[in-house]
Amino acid sequence: MKYFPTRRILLGTAAASAVLAMTACGGNVGGASGSADAYPSKPINVTVGAAPGGSTDLIARAVAEGASEDLGVAMPVVNKPGANGALALKEVQGKAADGYELATLNASLITITPLAVSEAEAVSLDDVEVIVGLSQDDYVLVANPEAGVKTVKDLTAAKDLTFGTTGVGTGSQLAQALLLKQAGIKGTEVPFDSGAPAVTAVLGNQVQLATVQLGEAKAQIDAGKLVPVVVFSTERNKFLPDVPTATEEGYDIPVSQYRAMVAPKGTPEDVQARLKTAFENTFKTEAYQQFNEQNLLTPREVSGEEVVSEWTELAAKYKQLTEKYDISLQEN
């Protein structure tokens, strides 16, 4: 019985700080400083909209590991796969905006998926607070050595090629479809469920080429089992310095995967700032930098505002490109 009123007081305090937090959003930053001292006082959940083991999951775990040390509380990673990550994001949006519920977000969900799925499923950056950008993951077009293609020029000369993609509404599908149209390559696109089966199919020459994320094909490229043809980032990837970009080859295909850390809309600004500091401190650690190297990720540690403007720009760009080249991600 003794604890009952205490709990009530706690609840009252929580409600009060929530009110303070709301005023903080209105511009009254000074009023919320009290809650910043208390934050964080309990574990912070990081929801990942992908199954354990993939690169999104590994990145979330690496970031959470570093940030939890800085913040002094545990940061358990919760996997909630489904609908390309939309499911996890929608769930986190519904949680209290108190800084104890975070999620990782893939740019493709904002910039590419809406081109392929119904409007009801699409998610928007307006519904979240972007804390910080994390990293960039590049797409590479790889070929089976037996296909005899080494450059984009070889592709335009060849006929009856099959191109694997990693699924509908992915950067792999968009980048490849744009390349086929812009370079006038004749080929059939074959969607697979994810990167690994697509790479297997190219290794076995079931399809001659596929566009996958670099981490999924680097070991095979190094072993000479796959030939890298072109990278879809605007600048050369530092892990594949000899492979030209599509931009260099004269095509307009700026497609990469970006990831960011987000919180529900209305999370107090001082809490956001505290989180941002924790993530920035993580980025400086050797362990995290090593993690990026091992997973072939290029750091893209920009502010939340930059993420919003960059991704919004990309979404508009992709929409314009697909319209210009008459590409529909919904049909094959």
């Binding site: 489904g82 609908a83 929608k90 799925v117 009801a120 919904q330």
Partner: peptide, 17 residues
């Protein structure tokens, strides 16, 4: 997986996959 069309999901995101 091929067209992105929703099949028997009744607009429920949990059934999208």
């Amino acid at each position: 997986v091929f067209t992105g069309a929703e099949r028997f999901t009744f607009g429920n995101l949990s059934m999208a996959d």
